[in-house]
Simulated assay, not measured.
Amino acid sequence: MTTVTDAVTEAPATTVPEPVRRRSPYPYWFILPGGVIFTVFFLVPSVMAFWFSLTRWTLFDQEFIGLDNYVQFFREPALASGLWHTLIYAVVTSGLKVVLGMALAVLLTGPILGRGFMRSVAFFPVLVSTIGVGLTFQILMHPTRGVINQALDLAGITGPAWLADPDWALLSVAFVDVWQGVGLALVIYMAGILSIPGEYFEAATMDGAGAWHRFRNITLPLARPATVSVILLSLIGGLRKFDLIWAMTKGGPGFTSDVMASVIYKQYQAGFYGLSTAGNVVLFLLVILIALPLFWFFNRKEDA
Score class of each variant (00 low, 15 high):
Thr205Tyr: 03
Ile231Ala: 05
Ser195Trp: 01
Thr39Ser: 14
Gly82Thr: 06
Gly66His: 04
Thr3Val: 02
Gln72Lys: 09
Phe201Ile: 03
Gly254Glu: 03
Phe64Trp: 14
Arg240Trp: 08
Gln150Phe: 03
Ile157Trp: 07
Pro27His: 08
Leu292Glu: 15
Trp168Thr: 06
Asn299Tyr: 10
Gly254Lys: 02
Thr9Pro: 15
Ala191Met: 08
Ile31Cys: 13
Trp296Gly: 15
Leu222Pro: 13
Thr58Trp: 04
Leu186Tyr: 05
Glu199His: 10
Pro25Ser: 11
Leu43Gln: 08
Leu289His: 14
Ala164His: 12
Leu87Phe: 12
Phe175Met: 09
Ile288Pro: 14
Lys97Asp: 03
Phe123Ile: 01
Val8Cys: 10
Ala49Leu: 12
Leu289Val: 15
Pro125Phe: 15
Ala11Lys: 12
Val187Ser: 00
Glu18His: 09
Thr5Ile: 03
Leu163Trp: 02
Ser46Gly: 13
Ala78Met: 14
Leu283His: 05
Ser120Leu: 12
Leu294Gln: 13
Asp207Cys: 03
Ala278Asn: 02
Phe175Arg: 00
Gly279Phe: 07
Trp296His: 13
Gly34Gln: 01
Pro253Met: 00
Ala161Glu: 09
Val182Thr: 01
Asn217His: 15
Pro166Ile: 00
Ala247Trp: 09
Thr219Cys: 12
Met248Tyr: 11
Ile264Tyr: 07
Gly110Arg: 01
Thr14His: 14
Glu199Asp: 14
Leu113Lys: 15
Arg115Tyr: 12
Pro253Leu: 01
Phe272Arg: 06
Phe52Lys: 00
Ile131Asn: 09
Val178Ile: 08
Asp153Pro: 12
Thr39Arg: 00
Leu67Asp: 08
Pro17Asn: 05
Gln150Gly: 12
Val182Tyr: 03
Ala164Trp: 05
Met141Tyr: 13
Ala191Glu: 02
Tyr70Glu: 04
Ala223Glu: 09
Ala174Lys: 08
Thr277Gly: 03
Phe295Thr: 15
Tyr200Pro: 12
Met190Gln: 01
Tyr26Val: 03
Pro225Asn: 02
Pro17Cys: 00
Leu285Asn: 10
Thr249Gln: 00
Met141Ser: 04
Trp162Gln: 02
Val8Pro: 15
Pro33Tyr: 02
Val128Pro: 01
Pro12Val: 00
Phe295Asp: 13
Asp207Trp: 06
Phe117Leu: 11
Pro111Val: 14
Glu63Leu: 04
Ala105Pro: 09
Phe38Gly: 03
Val36Arg: 01
Gly271Phe: 03
Pro17Gly: 06
Leu87Arg: 09
His142Ser: 13
Ala278Arg: 00
Val121Ile: 10
Phe298Asp: 09
Leu67Asn: 07
Val91Trp: 06
Thr136Gly: 07
Arg224Lys: 13
